[in-house]
Every structure is written in C-alpha cells, then in structure tokens.
Nucleic acid binder design. Structure first.
Lengths: 154, 154
DNA sequence: CTGCTTGCAAAGTGTTTGCAGGCCC
DNA sequence: GGGCCTGCAAACACTTTGCAAGCAG
C-alpha cells in the first residue's frame, strides 16, 4: 500500500532532478496514511523507516517536496504547520476530494471543507482584485458545534 | 482624535472590572490610527505614550483587551499575529466596514476583503456542520495580482 | 568524484511564564 | 492596603541557518 504510491512520488522527485534519499522517502511514506502531521510528528514517525533522521532534515525535505508540488502545508493558528500529500503525489488517487481546513479555536479540532464551498469566494476575489486564493494554505477559524455552548477565547 | 475613542474603550475596560493602566491605554491609543500592527510594533510605538512598556506587558494587555472584546487579532501565515480594534471599542464608529484579510504568500501584502463575500461560506458551514466561522481570525492565503507572474513558493 | 543532502549545534522568531515589586482602586 | 499589573529574565515552541562530513548520481 505504501510502496506503490511512494515509488510514484519518488519518480516525480527524480524527474525534477532531485536526489532520492532515505529521509525523503521516509517523509513521503509517513504522510501516506496520515494526512495532518506536523514536522515534529513526521520526524518522530520517520524514525522507523530511517533511523536518525533529524528534525532539520525533515523540514528541508518538506520544503523540497513542497516546491515540487508533491506535498502541501496548511498553517494552523498558533501551532505547528501541518503537511499532507497532494493528489499529484498519489498514483492510485484513492484520495478523498481536495479540501480546505477549518479549525475550532476552542478545542483545536480540524474539520475538512470541500473546496466547492470556497469556489465562489475564490472567483469573487479573482474578479475583484485579481487575487488568486489558495484555499488549502491556511485553516479557517471558528467554533465547532460541540464547543458553541462554552465561552470564547483562543 | 485619539482621546475620545480611547476614553470610551477605557470605560468599557473599567466596566469589566479591569484596571486602567498606562500600558493598556497606550496599546489602545497606538491601535487607533493603525489597524494592522504586530505585538512588537505596538510595543515599539507604545514607548511614546508609556515609556518602558515591556513587550511582555503588551502581550498581556492584548490578551486582556481581547477577552473583553475591545480588540481582535488575525493570524498571518508564518509571521507575527496582527491586532486591531473592534468596532465596539470605537465610540465614533468612523470605522471602515468590517473585513477579513487575504495575504499574498509571495510578497506578504495584506488585502482587505469585505465580510459580505464570505457570508455565503459562513452560512454553508453553519448549516452543514454547525461550525460558526470567524472570518477575521485568520488570513486567507493566495497570490496577489502583482505577484502572479513570478513562480510560487512560500 | 562532484556537489547535493544530511546531522549537529546554534541562533532566530514569536510568545508565554515565574516571580518580586509597584500601582490602581 | 489588597491584589491586580508590570518588568525582568528565562523558558518555550517552531523553524531556519552555518558548517563539515556523507552519500546519490
């Protein structure tokens, strides 16, 4: 399950003139089953596939893979950025539909929002100020259903 | 220009059982003319009104004023949170319409987006998953018109 | 072999916390 | 005066950078 799509991703890596290393392979493999991991979580789990991978290396691998477009990241308010594979990186494409993230400022939970819901907004922005919105790049904030009884803060 | 609305804000502060101090007054005054300041920028400018105000104190003042609802903040990707007064805090209410922020991942520029554009999305989220969106709380990311010729990164 | 990648250490942001003293009410 | 606020120092979480050694191609 991992190997097939991982190899596809590595092939893309190579085709961009980048070297295939244990660290980069580990990062991709770790992201396969888990979509919302922080750099530290990735580093921790990568230990299994590539003992000794340093957090620094994970950050650098994430940057490289991100430039190529194999992975993307989402900024979440007040805590670590989360990373995920893009559809491109997954040969099997058994991926769920692309989605944006909304985060509850109370409990921190992340929810997925279908891109479709954000399309009208993106269109408006493009038309009005020429701004090309990337709906995946930052989490939208608010309060989830479960937390709406409690008071608000951050 | 500052004094009138500042006093109104301070009255609200007092009415919440909080003490009115030089540091808190300075934070409010500094935010009056400038809407998008980071904690550090606020601390730097507050020096004028209240010499010696420490960054730490600014953070604590911002937290307190935020809990009361006099100010709000917006998380921007990869850099410092920006703070602004809320409509409540401004007696004169000569405020521009409330707006959300979109940020260019290339040049870092911030743009305002009328809340109106985000209303349909907020409604959808509320209906579908009971999530109450706070459109002001995090900046949306994308690429501005001027930067769209260049390549992308972050 | 050439030089892209890595590991380590250290620095860099942005923000928070512990504690003693100071000021608002 | 009592206790909330402040200043200072230090710690904190996350991320980046410099440099010598290592491995991919």
């Amino acid at each position: 399950m991992t190997t097939a799509s991982t190899d596809a991703a590595l092939a893309i890596l190579r085709s961009h003139g980048e070297r295939v290393t244990a660290a980069r392979r580990a990062v991709i493999e770790v992201l396969q089953p888990h979509d919302h991991l922080t750099a530290d979580e990735i580093a921790a789990r990568a230990e299994a596939a590539a003992p000794g991978v340093h957090r620094t290396t994970v950050y650098r691998a994430l940057a490289t893979l991100g430039e190529i477009g194999l992975i993307a990241h989402t900024h979440v308010a007040g805590s670590a950025t989360i990373y995920h594979l893009t559809a491109d990186s997954d040969a099997d494409d058994h991926h769920e539909l692309d989605h944006a993230h909304v985060q509850c400022t109370e409990c921190g939970s992340l929810f997925n929002v279908e891109d479709r819901l954000l399309a009208p907004l993106a269109d408006d922005l493009e038309r009005q100020i020429g701004f090309r919105l990337d709906v995946h790049h930052a989490a939208l904030l608010g309060v989830c259903a479960r937390c709406q009884e409690s008071v608000a803060s951050d």
